[in-house]
């Protein structure tokens, strides 16, 4: 290729380049006008988004084409200066810096003062964290239910011993505390002779009404689903399942601890009431849960 031809090619490329850049910027202007129109009239999200994209995209394309077609594009090679200083320079710096510190370092008392001041300040600042939260154990272990609390539905209606059909489940709360996080409970009705509860819990489920904390012991999500046929409770967050018949012991998935059970009894009006608190504190596990 002769120099003349190269020059011609280059000119042609520049010509089409400036045409493309102009076209891109014109599209950007059109997008901008469309955006203004959309903004002042319909404010439709799709229209606004597309118009904004056309406006910005036009500018972007214009600039990139400009750079590629109309600007100098030859690859240049430059030197890399060494990143390290010379040894002399480094030694001079160290001398200047450490010279001052050594003079202080010789006075031992001052050294101890530095330690004392730093640790006191650190302790003061760290202890301020106490303002950010209350003591956890009393909250985590606070009784959610107490003996005599009447079970009510999310609408606040008491639940009688025959209210539930076999194989159905509802969310219940202590009366006057509907919506409570810690006390939310699942009441399930199963055939009484299917239940395999531990000995000490034999009278906790009158007429097959069995109640468990609704908060998953894994990561604290509310249990979402009761599978009637398998008698399984399922947590929607991480797919842990709990067997209702076996005192809500975990059967699959990541959860390792059973759902705490709520002891029930039937009062004079045939309504269900709590006979005490959950068998363990409800919710996800923590360090001093067992003690």
């Amino acid at each position: 290729m002769t120099g003349d031809q190269q020059g011609n090619n280059r000119e042609a490329s520049e010509g089409s380049g400036s045409f493309l850049v102009t076209a891109a910027f014109l599209i950007a202007v059109a997008g901008g006008i469309a955006f203004l129109y959309a903004y002042w009239t319909s404010a439709n999200n799709l229209f606004l988004g597309v118009a904004l994209a056309v406006m910005l995209g036009g500018v972007g394309c214009g600039l990139v084409i400009w750079a590629h077609r109309l600007m100098e594009n030859e690859e240049v090679t430059g030197p890399r200066e060494p990143l390290e200083s010379s040894i002399e320079e480094r030694e001079l710096l160290l001398e200047d810096f450490l010279g001052g510190e050594q003079r202080i370092g010789r006075r031992r008392l001052l050294g101890w003062m530095v330690v004392a001041v730093t640790s006191t300040l650190a302790a003061a600042f760290v202890s301020v964290l106490r303002s950010f939260g209350q003591a956890p154990t009393p909250v985590l272990k606070k009784a959610a239910w107490k003996r005599g609390d009447r079970l009510v539905t999310a609408e606040g209606k008491p639940v009688s011993v025959d209210a539930l059909d076999l194989g159905s489940a509802i969310a219940v709360f202590p009366e006057n505390r509907v919506g409570s996080l810690a006390a939310q409970t699942l009441l399930i009705r199963v055939k009484a002779d299917l239940l395999r509860l531990p000995k000490e819990r034999e009278n906790w489920a009158p007429n097959g009404n069995v109640a468990f904390s609704r908060i998953c012991t894994h990561a604290g999500c509310p249990i979402g689903l009761y599978e009637t046929r398998e008698h399984l409770l399922l947590c929607p967050c991480h797919q842990s399942t709990f067997n209702v018949l076996a005192a809500a012991a975990p059967t699959s998935g990541p959860a390792a601890r059973a759902l705490p059970q709520l002891p029930l009894y039937v009062d004079d009006q045939k309504n269900l009431r709590a006979a005490g608190d959950f068998s363990e504190p409800p919710g996800p596990g923590f360090w001093n849960l067992p003690s």
Partner: peptide, 30 residues
């Protein structure tokens, strides 16, 4: 080191890329 100089080529490409990224995000958002 081998490449193109900051001014004007690289700067134009970089600013252009910013607008293109913003455009794609606007299209997605819309």
């Amino acid at each position: 080191i081998v490449g193109s100089r900051l001014w004007p080529t690289y700067a134009a490409k970089a600013i252009g890329l910013f607008f293109l990224v913003f455009a794609v995000l606007a299209a997605l958002g819309g």
